[in-house]
Each structure stands twice: as structure tokens, then as C-alpha cells.
Write a protein that binds this DNA or RNA. Structure first.
Length: 767
RNA sequence: GCGGGCGUGGCGGAAUUGGUAGACGCGCCGGCUUUAGGUGCCGGUGGGCGAAAGCCCGUGGGGGUUCGAGUCCCUCCGCCCGCACCA
């Protein structure tokens, strides 16, 4: 007997060709043209985070796009017009480092990798609208990245300043605060250094409150929101001015506890504070201060950063005046005070702050209680009645808080204030493979934007990609030297490039209108598609990308280019696929599972179904070859049913008045419809949805004696329900049974009468 | 320390959100196809006693609410993730 068996190698290319030939997954912008909606269907924008094209796609990509594709298909089948595009985050360090090693132009290796991704997506059968494909390294794309940058520049949202910045000595470039993890470069793991450099920033801090408040409006996992809240780090308090009479300088400090002001018995500055040397000059402590500060500067962030570390510091030999008590209190420099938060100086209240308490103990400084705490020992950080606080004695400290701020305000010694942990986004990089910053430095006119008609500023070709502490672009003399667009005098181009997170902060808008050559996007079109209804990606972007994209959308909305305030309505964070040993896949561990051989051996449908079946998609899961084979076995069984039942008639109907085995099958099909639909709606319990289809298929096998029509109905239902997870096989089996294309069919509806009967029976059994 | 989450068979995990715990898959056991070994098919499989029907015990430990608790409340234990000298 000839081998009639499930052969994905034959089925999958067949359907992929049909989808490519017929442009099945393309969707037009018709609905938004002229503001007239021709298409009555609700829109849905389903988006997975765009891949960074480096080498070949890995198993995480397969998971990401299998998830997104299932959602996209489900939305289409339930009557929505779905935008499901694809692009590539093509600039970045790995391609450049590869170029340094091999001399191969990063464009070449990037394009090769993009080709590998395209081939993979096609062989996986992902339903992408290829007419909207973009890559951030194409001049047609980055022209508009530059344009948006200039809009930001004009509004003061992009600016240049000298600041102490994080420098990665290995990658030879500055890093954004968000890219420094535990004092190390997020990319290469090297310890970062501080450098005083002039750099480009985005004024994301202007949006701190909106970025914080609007988190309440979006449907994101709570822990991602909490990470963003943490990162923004808003705290309310007061700014209080302490005056150093000797130098006649006012030092403002930020405190969240103005109520404890009477207990401020000393004053501490961060080692990086610009005034420490000036203050210490001429005092007996001058030498000690120099030694201490120099040591603190060379210490790594890790060594400095622990709360358990004993407190160190040295006196500055000066005093400041406590504004409420009039006392002279001593000044210190100590590394437990951070320059990057508040004003880089603090009032120390040892009785009511654990850190100040530890410092006071170590240095024998006075500790004055200003809040009564009964039995509680010092330091006491809770609430209670005020003591030792002059006119505020006896008040509850919460009331004293308000009263003292009001008093400071009246006396001009302070005011209510809000402080953030969030810093402005450092966007310039001293590297080659990125979007050029479209600015010209003119000796006379200063920073001059490149005129719109000269955009894009194209990345020139160079021979030597090696970083030397400045951008490799600086060596391209004929590119760098230009005439000032304003005065015509000799001037120089900006040679830094943009952080690649700039490129990916607006790509989801470009998909809406990817061919536009007059604007980054038509606002009407973008407004019609935005927000992204469902965004899917890894947790590793919880802060960086997801915060930056939110900032961009708000800034573009303020420019009048967008009506929405948030890019991503709903966010789904997928878990990682771990190696078969349960550990994170890594080349050094030798536990990497590549998707290509699996697709080659068992087919894309089996790989996709397995990866969704393995467990809840937001959790990590270990790869299991055996489990994968179980899924393949299930697909084979479904295929066989289609093959055996297929060559009958064209229509698949619910048998009229089923009884016995037929009734069981029809009920099971209804049950599966209900179950899968529920699992697909909101919960994304794809694992249980697929399990329900498996159960239906098992049921059909248990009732092979049943009426053929009932079997065909149940099998067609299984194929239809499985389609979002295994699109090729779903199409194949459905066509075999009905002669129709499953994606053109509506999502099956459960027969309510059947479900009621089912429930009734259940209730009878229980009682 | 603060914030978020979790604890169910040998394993991954289900449980219609307070209603037959363990769906589905893996593994394991038995059988079938003349099957010479891993991309086949059927059945069994939480634990204990029993030939069987059946009975008892079972969702980290303890207590509670309820006709009914894996699910809700209290408490203890254990694990994971994020942030961490942020004034």
C-alpha cells in the first residue's frame, strides 16, 4: 500500500504559495481614506516586536510570531480587518562588531540576516502583510527618523548638553541610563565608566507624569507597569534651602520628609557634587576630601551601591544653616548620597532615616528625635506626634508636613516639589551603524538642522569601523565637511549616530503608511489603525523600548501628528523557551535548539502548535523533543481523518436529529468551539485551546462507527479551530472536507441548544 | 527591605472562576498490526486496600467561612521575578 501519511513538506509550501500569490494577508488603508469608512469591520492591529536581524531566527522568534499569528488569525476569523505587518530593527552594534572583525560591511551582513528571517517567516506560514515590510536601516525609513528628530529638536525635546555620562570602554560609546544594568553595559557586560561629555538627549523627563499616569489607562501586565512606575520613580516632597554663610551659597535639597526638618543635624553631599572641592578649599579637611572623592570616583557602581555597606565619608569643614532652627550644622561628603537623584545633596535626619542614622552613629553626630514613637526605637520612620519642633510640637507629623512646607514657602526657604528617578534619554552613540543625527555644527550659527529637502542624511561608506572614542564617521572627511545651510560658511556634520531604540520607537506608525514619501505617515491613516490592539514580545523590553515608544507617541501627539496617547493598548509578554535541560539556551551551554531543523523534519505546523501547547505562553518552558512528537502525532491523526473522510460530498452540515454516537460527536464539537473561543479571548490560553482540539480529535477516533456526516462535521470543526495554530494543516483538512478555504470562513459558532443540553446533563449528574 | 507572582500526579500543565480535581500531552504498563529497535494503532495509568464492584486518603503545613474550597479569608513554610543607600 502506498504511503498515505501526513506530509507537511508537501502541504505547507502549497498553502504558502497560495497566500503569497493571492496576497491573502494584505490589508488596505481604504477604511481611512478621506475619513470615510468603506469597510464596516472593526479594525485590529496585531503586532509582535520587530526582530533584530542578526544571524538566523531562533526559537524565541518562532514563539513570538506563532503567538501573534494565532491572535491575528483569530481576529480575522471573528470579523475584524487585521493589520499584521513585519519589519527589521536593522541598525545596531552586533552587525557593526561583526564588521570590525571581518571587514564585511554591516549593511551586507544585515541584509543577509534579513533574508534569512524573511525565508523563515514564509516557511513558518506567518500571515504577514508583506506589502508593508520595512527595515530601519533603509534611507526611506531613517529619513523619517531624522525628520522626527528635527521636530523634537525644534521643540526643545532634543537637546545637547555636557554631562557626566555612562561610557562603555568595550563598545567605545556612551549608554543611556536604561542600558546600564548593575553598573555594567547591557550589551557586552563590561563595567561602565563615568565621562564628562557633550551628548544629545531627549527630554523624556518632561513626560514623566504623563508616562506615569497613563499606565492606569492601558491593559498591560501589572508587573510591567510596576517596573515602569519604579523606573520613573516619582516622589513627592519639598525642596528646602540650606545656606552656607561662609561661602554665601544656597544649597537646595530634596526631601520627602519636610516634617522632620527640625531633626536635620547635619548635611551631606555626593562625591560628584561640583562644589565639594570649593567648599573644602582652605579648610583642614581639604586633603581628605580630595582623597575621598577620588577614591569614590574610581570605585565601581557595584562596590558603592550596596545599602549594607558601612557608611563612609569625610567632613567638608563647613556648615550650613538649618532654616527652621537657625543652627549651624556640619557638612560632609559621603558616597551614600547620589548625585543623580534630587540635588545631589541631602539634609540628614538621623532619628528618622536609617541611612542617616547609620552615618551619625559612625561619626558620633547628634541624633535628635522630632517624632514621638512610644516603644519604637530609633531610627523611626513611621508617623506620630511632633516633638522638639518649636511651634509644630504636638501636631501630627502628617499635618506638620503641610505646615512646615507652608512656612518654608512664606519665608522663601523652600517649596513643595516632586522628584523623579527618570533621567533624560541619552540618544547619541559614537558608533557607525546607526541613523545619522541630521545636525550641522556651524562655528557661527551653532547647531543647525539639516533642511528637510536634504533629508535623509545618508550614512556614508567607510573602510574602518573601529571605534576610537569618537564616531567612526568622523574619519569620512568629505562627508563631514559641508557648508552651513544658514550662512554657507564651512561647517561640520554631527558624527554621532542615534541609539537604535530611536528607530524602534515609531516603527509601528510607519507600518500604517509605509510608502509615504511626503511624511513619516499620514495622520488620518495612522489614527485609523492606532493604537496597536495587541502587542507581543519579550519581558526584556519592559522598560527600554516600551517606555521610549510611549514617550514618542506622546511627543508626536503633542505635535498634532497623532490622536492617540499610547502606542500599545494591550501588551502580552511571552516567556522564554529554555533548553531541554531547563536552562536558558546558550551556545556555551550547548543546549540551543534551532527552529530550522525542526520545521524541516516535522513541519512548521507541528513546531508552532508544540510551542503554544507546551504551557501558558507567558511562562518559561523547557523544550521537549518527546512532547513535540506527541503534537506531531496529533496533527497526523487529524490529517488522516481529513484524508479518509474527505472524498465524499462538498457540504459539511450538522446531522439532523443526531442520536447516539452522532450526538456525542456533535456535542463534543460544540464543546470544543466554546472552549477554544473562550481560551482565545483575552486569556491567550493557547495550550488549553489546542488541548481541546486534541480532545475532539480523540473523540472522533473513539466513534469511528458513527455516521460519516457527523464525523466530517466534527473533523471540519477541529480543522477550523486548529487553523490559527496550524494554518497549513487547518487549511488542508478543511478544504478536503468542504472544498472551501478555512480562512474565508467565519469562526464557528457553538450551537447554544447543544451547550444547554450538555449543561443540563451535567446538572442532572451532579444532583 | 520594597513591589509583583507562584506552590496541583513521575514530568509540562488543566479545572467552565465556589460545583464530579488531575483535561490534553509526555513518561510508564499491557496489548494489536507477521512489528527485526524510536515519527504506527488500541487500552490502562493520583495514592492505599481489593480478583472485582467498591471503600478510604488526596491540590506545600495548620486553622476558618460554606450544603460544598485547588479556588475565598487568616497564619506559617518554601520558591521565582523585578527594584534596591532614590533622601
Amino acid at each position: 500500500m502506498p504511503d498515505r501519511r501526513y506530509d507537511p513538506k508537501q502541504i505547507e509550501p502549497k498553502w504558502q504559495e497560495i497566500w503569497a500569490r493571492e496576497h491573502t494577508w494584505e490589508v488596505s488603508n481604504e477604511a481611512s481614506d478621506h475619513g470615510v469608512h468603506h469597510d464596516p469591520r472593526e479594525k485590529s492591529y496585531v503586532l509582535e516586536m520587530l526582530p533584530y536581524p542578526s544571524g538566523e531566527p531562533h526559537i524565541g522568534h518562532l514563539k513570538n510570531y506563532s503567538l501573534g499569528d494565532a491572535i491575528a488569525h483569530f481576529h480575522r476569523r471573528t470579523g475584524r480587518r487585521v493589520l499584521h505587518p513585519m519589519g527589521y530593527d536593522a541598525f545596531g552594534l552586533p552587525a557593526e562588531n561583526h564588521a570590525i572583525r571581518t571587514g564585511e560591511h554591516p549593511r551586507r551582513s544585515t541584509d543577509e540576516s534579513i533574508a534569512a528571517f524573511q525565508a523563515a517567516f514564509r516557511s513558518w506560514g506567518i500571515s504577514i502583510d508583506w506589502s508593508r515590510e520595512i527595515a530601519t536601516h533603509e534611507p526611506t525609513y531613517y529619513r523619517w527618523t531624522q525628520w522626527i528628530f528635527l521636530q523634537m529638536f525644534e521643540r526643545g525635546l532634543a537637546y545637547r548638553k555636557e554631562a557626566a555620562v555612562k561610557w562603555c570602554p568595550h563598545d567605545q560609546t556612551v549608554l543611556a541610563n536604561e542600558q546600564v544594568i548593575d553598573g555594567r553595559c547591557e550589551r557586552c557586560g563590561h563595567e561602565v565608566e563615568l565621562r564628562q561629555l557633550e551628548q544629545w538627549f531627549f527630554r523624556i523627563t518632561d513626560y514623566a507624569d504623563r508616562l506615569l499616569d497613563d499606565l492606569d489607562e492601558i491593559e498591560w501586565p501589572e508587573y510591567v507597569k510596576s517596573m515602569q512606575r519604579n523606573w520613573i520613580g516619582r516622589s513627592e516632597g519639598a525642596e528646602v534651602t540650606f545656606r552656607c554663610e561662609a561661602l554665601r551659597i544656597d544649597y537646595p535639597v530634596f526631601t520627602t520628609r519636610p516634617d522632620t526638618l527640625f531633626g536635620a543635624t547635619f548635611f551631606v553631599m555626593a562625591p560628584e557634587h561640583p562644589d565639594v572641592f570649593r567648599l573644602a578649599a582652605g579648610t583642614p579637611h581639604e586633603h581628605d576630601v580630595h582623597a575621598y572623592v577620588n577614591h569614590a570616583m574610581t570605585e565601581s557602581a557595584e562596590d558603592r551601591g550596596s545599602a549594607e555597606k558601612p557608611k563612609t565619608g569625610v567632613p567638608l569643614g563647613r556648615t550650613v544653616t538649618n532654616p527652621v532652627t537657625g543652627e549651624q550644622i556640619p557638612m560632609f561628603v559621603a558616597d551614600y548620597v547620589l548625585m543623580e537623584y534630587g540635588t545631589g545633596a541631602i539634609m540628614a535626619v538621623p532619628a528618622h532615616d536609617t541611612r542617616d542614622f547609620a552615618f551619625a552613629e559612625a561619626f558620633g553626630l547628634p541624633i535628635r528625635r522630632v517624632i514621638e514613637s512610644g516603644e519604637e526605637p530609633l531610627p523611626y520612620t513611621g508617623d506620630g506626634p511632633m516633638v522638639n519642633s518649636g511651634e509644630f510640637d504636638g501636631m501630627h507629623n502628617r499635618d506638620a508636613y503641610e505646615a512646615i512646607v507652608a512656612w518654608l514657602d512664606r519665608e522663601g526657604r523652600g517649596h513643595a516639589s516632586v522628584s523623579y528617578r527618570l533621567r533624560d534619554w541619552l540618544l547619541s552613540r559614537q558608533r557607525y551603524w546607526g541613523c545619522p543625527i541630521p545636525i550641522i555644527h556651524c562655528p557661527r550659527d551653532g547647531l543647525v538642522p539639516v533642511p528637510d529637502e536634504d533629508l535623509p542624511v545618508e550614512l556614508p561608506n567607510i573602510d574602518d569601523y573601529r571605534p576610537r572614542g569618537r564616531s567612526p564617521l568622523a574619519a569620512a572627511a568629505d562627508w563631514v565637511n559641508v557648508k552651513c545651510p544658514r550662512c554657507g560658511a564651512p561647517a561640520r556634520r554631527e558624527t554621532d549616530t542615534m541609539d537604535t531604540f530611536v528607530d524602534s520607537s515609531w516603527y509601528f506608525l510607519r507600518y500604517c503608511d509605509p510608502l509615504n514619501d511626503a511624511a513619516p505617515f499620514d495622520s488620518r491613516i495612522a489614527n485609523a489603525w492606532m493604537e496597536v490592539d495587541q502587542y507581543i514580545g519579550g519581558v526584556e523590553h519592559a522598560i527600554l523600548h516600551l517606555m521610549y515608544a510611549r514617550f514618542f507617541v506622546k511627543a508626536l501627539a503633542d505635535m498634532g501628528l497623532l490622536d492617540v496617547q499610547e502606542p500599545f493598548r494591550r501588551l502580552f509578554t511571552q516567556g522564554m523557551i529554555l533548553g531541554p535541560d531547563g536552562h536558558k539556551m546558550s551556545k556555551s551551554q550547548g543546549n540551543v535548539v534551532s527552529p530550522m531543523p525542526i520545521v524541516d523534519r516535522l513541519g512548521a505546523d507541528a513546531a508552532r502548535c508544540y510551542i503554544l501547547f507546551i504551557g501558558p505562553p507567558d511562562q518559561d518552558a523547557a523544550w521537549s523533543e518527546k512532547s513535540l512528537e506527541g503534537v506531531h502525532r496529533f496533527l497526523s491523526r487529524l490529517w488522516r481523518l481529513g484524508d479518509e473522510l474527505g472524498n465524499h460530498a462538498a457540504g459539511v452540515e450538522v446531522p439532523i436529529d443526531p442520536a447516539g454516537d452522532e450526538l456525542t460527536l456533535v456535542r463534543k464539537a460544540n464543546w470544543a468551539i466554546d472552549k477554544v473561543t473562550a481560551d482565545m479571548t483575552g486569556r491567550f490560553a493557547f495550550n488549553t485551546a489546542i488541548a481541546a482540539v486534541m480532545e475532539l480529535v480523540n473523540e472522533i477516533y473513539r466513534h469511528r462507527d458513527a455516521d460519516v456526516e457527523a464525523q466530517r462535521f466534527a473533523t471540519a470543526t477541529a480543522a477550523s479551530l486548529l487553523f490559527p495554530f496550524a494554518p497549513h494543516l487547518g487549511s488542508e483538512v478543511y478544504e478536503a472536507l468542504t472544498g472551501r478555504r478555512v480562512w474565508e470562513e467565519p469562526w464557528p459558532d457553538a450551537d447554544p441548544a447543544m451547550l444547554v443540553a450538555e449543561t443540563f446533563e451535567l446538572v442532572c449528574q451532579v444532583n
